[in-house]
Write a protein that binds this DNA or RNA. Structure first.
Lengths: 345, 345
DNA sequence: GTGAAAGCGCTAACAA
DNA sequence: TTGTTAGCGCTTTCAC
């Protein structure tokens, strides 16, 4: 057992080994692997060949320690498979990689005592150059003591951090569009099945719905609470089916699907008796019965746009923040909505 | 500007600063933060207080460099929002955190030239103690040169690595259960809408379906190819509706939903004319019309069980691998399947 | 129980 | 264009 006794696998070749094999200094190897200028093509070749030969792989921990930068971004996500958060995470993954950064993920189970603050702390320990908080929920005012930039999707008013960037605040706008669509079809008012109140995304949608109603002077029916699940949409549907409803805007497609099921079971036809609009445009929404009218969340553009701001803040700390761009908003009209007609019964 | 010029933020306190403040040696601070023994309660208190006071946070890069271990696990995932991969990722996230490790994620877009090998390489550079390959697709024989243990979900025969662990090989079994259910209902045979052939998960399901048919001596209709999307299920449904079908097993719920839509549009009733079974038990499957009979993929137990093996292999490199445990298999019977009856028409 | 010294593999600053 | 030197913040070894 002649291991070095020190860190890790004594056999993993270091840049020193490469230098030795290529007959150059260790610093030159470093230059080559960082694509610095002032390395002759010849030397670069030799170094690369030697590295390949002995199976050298740069050690990121050492690099991070020496440079103080990790070229990695941490994301705080919710530990749920919900379509929204999951899709946003996928978009963030892609965008982070495209920007040339590595991704570290910490998930905060809902109800987690340490919550977002704990997750951020853990990312900071791991070492990240920037942090993304995806789909935040309200856990009370939160002051983040961080010196890296923090990107939050959903502009929650109770977050503070020295270098806070917000992006993707379009739920409200989309909710207005959804509600307006129903109002435009002649419905006197629109009911709303909301997501959990602690979610900023749920609040934004409820707010957009409310504003659309007020703008038309429509009466504002009480919000029915859901938890994003189809099952909660179903429960809400049973409640709504008992009263008189002609139009419902559900805060996501899953709840819309549960709602439709409850409506059908109660003998209400969709869209003849009740029009339903969802939110997200999940891939199956076009194939349920009836195909669902919904608004599309542009997750990928949101992630790309947000990351652009974050990377800018990381790499140009002095510069002013970039202007956020607004991703395209889209209403997808399918068969779950129809013009309001006075009931024959 | 009196920055050290060296790595990172010169103001971030180090264990040396804590040592100074607490009047102990730097090594003692290290002991405290690693919960080593042989530190008096008194000293431990003082160190912790001092650390708190000056806002000390251990630096993981330095720790990794010195120890050769990162206490992090890397996962190679597909950059898709598909329910299966996304749910498995969520389970892995949770399991990794529970095991006290940090998570690094690299996604491989399908069609990515460097593919899994490139993703693994990038994780190795980042430094991980173990690697998880989630939902792999076949990119040809792949020999991973890695000295950390690698956990693969789905036991693909063409992966090799010095310390390979496989878990979650239950798709085939579940597919048999789904197919048997239809056969038990009296259907003479069962059609299959498969996922993309490059996915091991798709192959396993097709294989389970095939074995179930053979075990009963049922004729084996040609497989209809899908791509996991509801849209491809719909396309497959149009094809199937043209022939005579009484029972279909779709390789996931989304395709089943698309299929049902196509069937309904073609005037076939579900389940009266055609029975349909899906795969996954997505949260909405109970609320579509008709509610879908499906088999449940136990993602969380799969992730937990897999990670147990991986962490064991990381922490007890000498010991034999643990025995894999089989998560519970579950058929969820709802309203999309019915006993076969000779058509009145 | 505690501390001193060395060094993990790399980058930064400066020199040649 | 290349090399030398120092040192990032920690863990390891070994001495006390």
């Amino acid at each position: 057992m002649t291991r070095s006794g020190r860190g890790g696998n004594s056999s993993a070749p270091s840049s020193k080994d490469v230098a030795l094999a290529a007959g150059v200094s260790q610093k030159t190897v470093s230059r080559v692997f960082n694509n610095e200028q002032y390395v002759s093509a010849d030397v670069r070749q030799r170094v690369l060949a030697a590295a390949e030969e002995i199976g050298y792989r740069p050690n990121n921990a050492a690099r991070a320690l020496a440079s103080g930068r990790t070229r990695s971004i941490g994301v705080v996500t919710l530990g749920t498979g919900l379509y929204g958060p999951a899709s946003l995470l996928v978009g963030i993954e892609r965008a982070v990689q495209n920007a040339g950064y590595a991704l570290r993920v910490v998930s905060t189970l809902e109800g987690d005592p340490s919550g977002v603050a704990g997750a951020v702390e853990s990312l900071l320990e791991q070492g990240v150059d920037g942090i993304v908080i995806s789909e935040p929920i309200d856990e009370g005012p939160l002051a983040l003591q961080v010196d890296v930039p923090v990107l939050v999707f959903g502009a929650p008013p109770s977050f503070t951090a020295p270098r806070l960037i917000t992006a993707g605040v379009i739920s409200e706008e989309l909710a207005r569009i959804a509600t307006d669509h129903l109002l435009d079809l002649g419905h006197e008012t629109v009911h709303h099945i909301a997501g959990p109140r602690r979610w900023y995304a749920a609040r934004d949608r409820a707010e957009g719905w409310r504003k659309a109603l007020r703008a038309r002077g429509a009466v504002e029916p009480p919000v029915v609470d859901g938890d994003w699940s189809a099952s909660s949409g179903y429960a809400a549907g049973r409640v709504l089916a008992a009263g008189d409803v002609t139009a419902v805007f559900a805060a996501n497609d899953d709840m819309a699907i549960g709602l439709i099921r409850a409506l059908l079971e109660a003998g209400r036809r969709v869209p003849e008796d009740v029009s339903v609009v969802g939110f997200d445009d999940t891939p199956i929404s076009a194939y349920v019965t009836p195909p669902l009218t919904t608004v599309r969340q542009p997750f990928d553009p949101m992630a790309t746009a947000g990351l652009r701001l974050l990377v800018h803040a990381i790499e140009q700390p002095q510069a002013a923040d970039l202007e956020p761009e607004t991703p395209p908003l889209e209403l997808v009209v399918r068969a779950s909505t129809a013009r309001f007609a006075v009931h024959p019964g």
